[in-house]
Every structure is written in C-alpha cells, then in structure tokens.
C-alpha cells in the first residue's frame, strides 16, 4: 500500500471524479425530492474532494488536503442549514417536492 500512488496514473482519478460529479449533476436534474437533490450536491462535493486529494498527493503538496478539510466543514454547515430549511418547508406544505415550490419561478 506504501507505493500504490506510483502504479496508478492520475488520469484515472480525474476520470473517476469527473464521472462522480456528472452523476451528481444528473441526480439534481433527475429527481424531484429536495432531500435527494441535497444528497446529490453532497456527491458533487465529494467528487471535488477526491480530485483535490489526488492532486495534492500526486504533487506532494499538503495544502490541497487542508482545503479538503475546509470543504468538509462547509459541507457539514450546508447540510445542517439545508435540512432545517427542508423541515420547515415540509411543515408548511407537507411535501418536499420541488415542483410545488414554484412561487419564485420566473
């Protein structure tokens, strides 16, 4: 496991994380449940985290991992506030369907 980085080209991580990001985008467009959409946003954040960690280990620079740490902090705060919003929305309209929440639609 010590030198696993040496036998894997970095392009594989690029392809994997971009594919994960696209699955997240697809999920946001695919579903109507707001909780699932939040989960897909988490998936996209994870793809970016994976990309940052791979760049930081392949370049031998620890700053990328510090940034991943901060991204995790922001993701945790975002999920807490987003779920609180969803709970209060559910209390008002008894649903988490995004098609009902169309008052601000242009």
């Amino acid at each position: 496991m010590e030198n696993s980085i040496q036998s894997i080209p970095q392009n594989w991580y690029l392809i994997l994380s971009s594919f994960m990001f696209c699955i997240g985008i697809m999920g946001v467009l695919f579903r109507r449940n707001a909780i699932i959409i939040l989960m897909c946003i988490e998936l996209m954040l994870n793809a970016v985290n994976l990309l940052l960690v791979s760049f930081s280990s392949y370049a031998g620079n620890a700053e990328g991992q510090v940034f991943v740490f901060f991204i995790m902090v922001v993701a945790a705060a975002e999920v807490a506030v987003g779920l609180a919003l969803l709970v209060s929305i559910y209390r008002n309209i008894a649903s988490t369907d995004i098609n009902i929440l169309s008052k601000m639609k242009w």
Binding site: Q6, P9, N11, L14, S57, N61, Q65
Partner: peptide
C-alpha cells in the same frame, strides 16, 4: 491537462 502516464515521484507522508 497532464500526460496520461504522469506518475508521482514517490510516496510521501503529507497525509
């Protein structure tokens, strides 16, 4: 962006 056979110089302890 990067050549497809780009390989890290060595396993490091930055993690």
């Amino acid at each position: 962006t990067i050549p497809s056979n780009y390989i890290a110089p060595k396993a490091s302890e930055i993690g």
